[in-house]
Design a protein around this nucleic acid. Structure first.
Lengths: 290, 290
DNA sequence: CGACTAATTGAACCCCCTCAACCAAAGTGG
DNA sequence: CCACTTTGGTTGAGGGGGTTCAATTAGTCG
């Protein structure tokens, strides 16, 4: 099983470049520079039309677990692209409470919120050792003028971020706690798959508290929900280790419809063998599974 | 199942003659074209460095109350800037439930979510008669290459949208119903002020249901909260008419985790409403009841 | 090994939702 | 003109989903 330990930069099979740093490249000095094509590849931007003879290079920078990449109010001048590793971005309210906004990982762009006010509106913290590509905003705008495709791509990436935020708003506004946790797991699974890791077995990089903050729940509710999913066979849980057992049920898990359907706690407790549903679409899907 | 008035944009017999005095200029055909400077002004973008001799013109288009500007999945090619009027953007889930994402009004940009997938990810509906400026995406990118300031401004506007969404996520994830409604009112008040309207007395353009959807609450909770604010003197409410009475209290109203903050508000209420002890103890926190 | 953080689990509470009744305003049609 | 319907808003009663408080266990690091 792919232990989701410190990120392994060799997972990128598409890139033909020689692996500069062998593995665990972050701590030595990691990769130091990327060219434009590599940058586009990481961002999942079609780099076909990019002039590969471009001289432009983009600096990398490494952060260790717990380090802060930028803080709220700090003057903005560069965007960050995750080359490897895991992070969180948080808002901090007037009482010092953290509100997790996102969990950037490979291919994700962050820092965009700083463009408007020229100061970062959020704080980014490394949840693991990270290798980030620096994308100075000035260089970005210059690139946009030089390469039409790149300009379009940057708009596209920012649009993608906006759509993602919209999905978050929709989720927070309409879904039950169980549905939120289920979607969170499915989302994580898909992102791991995109990154070349196992989508069925992975380790969470964040605490229950951070998950709860991200989903608008308390850490206890997150823990309970994971335990419930474990009991009914949707997943297996052991601390940070998550095994996806029944992806379809997780995907179709919605807000528990009105009241007629069986209580969820009953299902989790004793409904291990009553896996029948007479409805065309049991909102809980196949419970039995294994 | 009931599909909601598909692209048939014909609305109720709203004669073009009878003018709604609030927003003049939309009727007939309103303004037909804006130049770049006007566009920047509406977007609150510094237009100093813009060449005023620019030939480029931007077309306007008018929509009447209830009409749909774009739908989910519709091919994307243009952004919209609100010149006058009020709208809502919504997501529609698999069961047909609307999730309100934003209430665009003068100076706001929408349609950005369509850039990424080349199809609109949300639906925009006019809540009043509207005058919109069309901003074809191709024209935008061309402008960005021609005018450095404009390119920066567009990034800035998109960044602003992202920050706004982040604030929504934070609110939905952490604030109580009362705090959400209070923030919503403060936010509305400020936006009205920016637009030159009164910040103390205005009419809501949206239903309780739409407010609730936007805030992640039910319409009943919104209604009750507004009534409660009315009772303790923070606002005055009469249907769609809102009067802001105590802006500071609205601004400082937060989640009430400990009972201390509740006690404060109770005291505030008693101080202001000592006269009436007759009515049954309201829903406002079960002060003495139970 | 202790000290600390993270996670699990239980019990009680309460905020908000659900369901429901009622009201007001604005159409609609006779 | 007035019944009738529709839409939007208010308010009440009750229940439940999630929080809060609290105790226990597991994992981590000095």
């Amino acid at each position: 099983m792919l232990s989701t330990q410190t990120s392994d930069s060799r997972v990128e099979a598409n890139s033909t470049l020689h692996a500069t740093s062998t593995e665990a490249g972050w701590q030595r000095q990691g990769k130091l520079w990327s060219n434009l094509k590599e940058l586009c590849d990481v961002l999942r931007i079609p780099s076909a039309a990019i002039h590969t003879d471009e001289e432009l290079l983009f600096q990398h920078v490494q952060f260790k677990t717990g380090q802060r990449i930028h803080t709220i109010g700090q003057p903005f001048d560069t965007l960050y692209i995750v080359h490897s590793g895991f992070l969180k971005t948080v808002l901090i309210d007037e009482f010092g409470n953290e509100q997790v906004l996102s969990f950037p990982m490979k291919g994700d762009l962050f820092g965009v919120d700083g463009i408007h006010t020229k100061r970062y509106a959020s704080e980014a913290v490394a949840l693991s050792n990270c290798d980030l590509i620096l994308l100075p905003f000035k260089k970005l705008t210059a690139l946009g003028r030089a390469h039409v495709e790149f300009e379009h791509a940057m708009y596209s990436v920012m649009s993608r971020e906006l759509v993602r935020e919209q999905a978050m708003v929709s989720m927070l506004g309409a879904l039950s706690a169980e549905a939120r946790v289920a979607r969170f797991l499915v989302n994580l699974s898909e992102r791991y798959a995109e990154m070349g890791y196992s989508s069925k077995l992975f380790n969470l990089r964040m605490t229950r508290h951070e998950i709860g903050s991200y989903l608008g729940l308390t850490l206890e509710t997150v823990s309970r929900t994971l335990s419930a999913f474990n009991e009914i066979g949707l997943i297996s849980v052991d601390q940070r280790s998550i095994g996806i057992k029944d992806l379809d049920s997780l995907k179709t898990l919605r807000r528990l419809p009105p009241s007629s359907s069986r209580a969820k706690q009953v299902a989790s407790r004793k409904a291990k063998q009553l896996a029948q549903q007479e409805r065309p679409e049991g909102e809980w899907g196949q419970v039995a599974g294994v």
